[in-house]
């Protein structure tokens, strides 16, 4: 779609591009209404298969990190039409996923010309006993986005940490899942760095200790000027007697 609009805009201007886009959108709606090329009509809100349920030990209420979100989109629209104009991957959708937890948006992910969407939001979320994740997936287009489908994840009593938690998809969302991880402590986050740092400091101290005579070289200092041993007056470098008291150097 974007290719056609850009091509038409380049050849004939923006007005023609808008008209082409409207024409494409109208034919798209008509094809969807007819159910496409003989394809059975599918209710957009009905699950396409028995909804998968997570099979974890359950999550205690608390704060967790959302480490992965995966979405698989059907290769075509309901009626069998391509998501976008073009050949090959250009016909694939540009999926955009919006994930909410208990009505609050917690992540958005994008991909271009792909039926799979994977991202690592990395955001911390607070899970309650009645929490519910809801996912909306859209195909991003130039003028208006097409809704691909939705997915939900309920029953925190069946969730788990580190597990792939399957969401119940609807519409053209074939599968969706997310993964939660415990919030790491400061030590767990920096353990490798600190151990490396300690190892480096220890190795450096060993080197200094083993080669003490070679590495701990005192800085060169200019020797103090000669002074008279009798009156402490400063002497010239080549003086044989003190200029003040006459004592021999």
């Amino acid at each position: 779609m974007a290719v056609v609009v850009v091509a038409i805009a380049g050849l004939g201007g923006c007005k023609q591009a808008k008209e082409a886009a409207k024409k494409w959108a109208a034919s798209d709606v008509a094809a969807d209404a007819e159910g496409g090329a003989g394809a059975p009509a599918v209710d957009d809100d009905a699950p396409t298969a028995p909804p998968p349920r997570p099979d974890g030990p359950g999550l205690e209420p608390g704060t967790y990190r959302l480490v992965e979100l995966r979405v698989d989109v059907a290769p075509t629209k309901r009626g069998g039409r391509a998501w976008d104009i073009g050949d090959g991957v250009e016909a694939d959708p540009d999926p955009k996923a919006v994930l909410t937890l208990d009505g609050h948006q917690v992540a958005t992910c994008h991909a271009a010309d792909s039926t799979t969407l994977r991202c690592a939001p990395g955001r911390e979320v607070v899970i309650e006993p009645s929490s519910r994740f809801a996912l909306e997936v859209w195909d991003q287009d130039v003028l208006s986005d097409d809704k691909v489908g939705t997915a939900v994840l309920e029953e925190p009593q069946r969730w788990g940490v580190g597990l792939e938690l399957p969401m119940a998809p609807t519409g053209q969302v074939r599968a969706a899942s997310l993964r939660l991880a415990p919030v790491q402590t400061w030590w767990a986050t920096h353990q490798v760095r600190l151990l490396g740092l300690a190892g480096g400091v220890g190795a450096a101290l060993l080197v200094i200790g083993a080669f003490r005579g070679r590495v701990l070289v005192r800085d060169w200092e200019r020797p103090p000027p000669p002074r008279c041993g009798h009156c402490n007056a400063r002497l010239a470098d080549d003086a044989l007697t003190c200029g003040r008291c006459g004592a021999p150097t």
Binding site: V192, V201, A203, A204
Partner: peptide, 15 residues
């Protein structure tokens, strides 16, 4: 790389 970089940095600071 991560522990090695931190080790070298720590050694440099120690020296």
């Amino acid at each position: 790389a991560v522990p090695a970089i931190w080790g070298l940095a720590g050694a440099s600071l120690t020296f």
